[in-house]
Amino acid sequence: MTVDLRQFRYFICVAEEGNFTRASARLKVAQPSLSRQVQQLERELGLRLLIRHPHGVTLSTAGAEFLADARAAVEAFDSAVRAARLAGAGKSGRLTVGFLVAAAMEFAPLVLKTFDRRFPEVDVEVREFDFNDTSAGLADGSTDVAFLRLPHGAAGLEHLVLAHEKLVAAMAVGHRLASNDEVSVDDLLNEPLIASPGGGPWRDFWMFNDRRDGADAVVGAEASSFESELQAAAAGRGISITTERARRFYYRPDLAFVDISDAPVSTIALAWRSDSTSPVLERFVSVAEDAAGHPVEDGHGPGAS
Results as ranks from 00 to 15, higher is better:
Ala146Glu: 02
Glu158Lys: 15
Arg176Ala: 15
Ala72His: 11
Asp130Asn: 15
Arg26Trp: 01
Thr242Gly: 12
Ala178Cys: 05
Arg237Lys: 15
Ala84Arg: 14
Arg149Ile: 06
Met207Tyr: 05
Val173Gln: 13
Glu229Cys: 14
Ala233Tyr: 04
Glu182Trp: 07
Phe11Asn: 02
Arg203Pro: 01
Asn190Cys: 09
Phe249Ser: 12
Ala163Lys: 12
Gly153Gln: 07
Thr96Pro: 00
Phe8Asp: 02
Ala269His: 01
Leu162Gly: 03
Asp290Met: 08
Val81Gly: 08
Leu100Ser: 07
Asn132Arg: 14
Trp272Cys: 09
Val29Met: 12
Phe99Tyr: 15
Leu189His: 02
Gly141Gln: 09
Leu34Gly: 00
Ala72Tyr: 03
Arg43Trp: 05
Phe129Leu: 06
His55Tyr: 11
Arg245Gly: 15
Asp262Val: 09
Ala102Ile: 01
Arg43Glu: 15
Val74Pro: 01
His300Glu: 09
Ala271Glu: 01
Ser35Leu: 10
Gln31Ser: 11
Gln37Phe: 07
Arg212Gly: 10
His294Gln: 14
Pro264Arg: 14
Phe226Glu: 13
Arg149Gln: 15
Thr96Tyr: 02
Leu67Arg: 14
Asp123Thr: 13
Lys113Ala: 15
Ser184Tyr: 10
Val111Leu: 05
Arg127Asp: 04
His294Asn: 14
Phe284Cys: 06
Thr21Asn: 10
Asp262Pro: 04
Arg26Tyr: 05
Phe147Gly: 07
Ile241His: 06
Arg245Glu: 11
Ala178Ser: 13
Gly303Gln: 04
Gly93Met: 08
Gly238Lys: 07
Phe205Glu: 08
Leu50His: 08
Glu229Leu: 13
Phe129Cys: 03
Tyr10Leu: 01
Val258Ala: 04
Leu150Asn: 13
Val265Ser: 13
Ala221Asp: 10
Asp140Leu: 06
Trp206Arg: 02
His55Cys: 09
Arg117Gly: 10
Glu182Ala: 15
Leu160Phe: 09
Leu255Met: 08
Ala291Leu: 13
Gly46Met: 07
Ala169Thr: 02
Val280Ile: 12
Gly174Val: 06
Glu121Leu: 05
Val3Arg: 09
Phe226Ile: 07
Leu67Thr: 08
Met207Glu: 10
Val122Asp: 09
Glu165Trp: 00
Phe107Ala: 12
Leu167Met: 15
Ala234Phe: 07
Ser92Phe: 06
Glu42Asp: 08
Gly220Ala: 10
Ser278Cys: 11
Leu59Gly: 13
Arg203Phe: 07
Phe208Arg: 08
Asn190Trp: 00
Ser225Gly: 11
Asp181Trp: 01
Ala154Tyr: 05
Val287Trp: 03
Leu50Glu: 03
Ala15Cys: 12
Ala139Tyr: 04
Gly220Met: 09
Val285Lys: 04
Thr21Cys: 06
Leu110Met: 10
Ala103Pro: 00
Leu59Ser: 13
Pro109Leu: 13
Ala155Cys: 03
Asp187Gln: 05
Phe20Ser: 03
Ser92Asp: 14
Glu282Gly: 11
Phe249Val: 09
Pro192Lys: 12
Ala70Phe: 04
Ser142Phe: 05
Glu227Asn: 11
Arg71Cys: 07
Asp262Trp: 11
Ala169Gly: 07
Leu177Asn: 00
Pro201Ser: 15
Val183His: 04
Arg82Gly: 00
Ala136Cys: 13
Pro279His: 10
Glu106His: 09
Asp275Glu: 14
Arg52Cys: 07
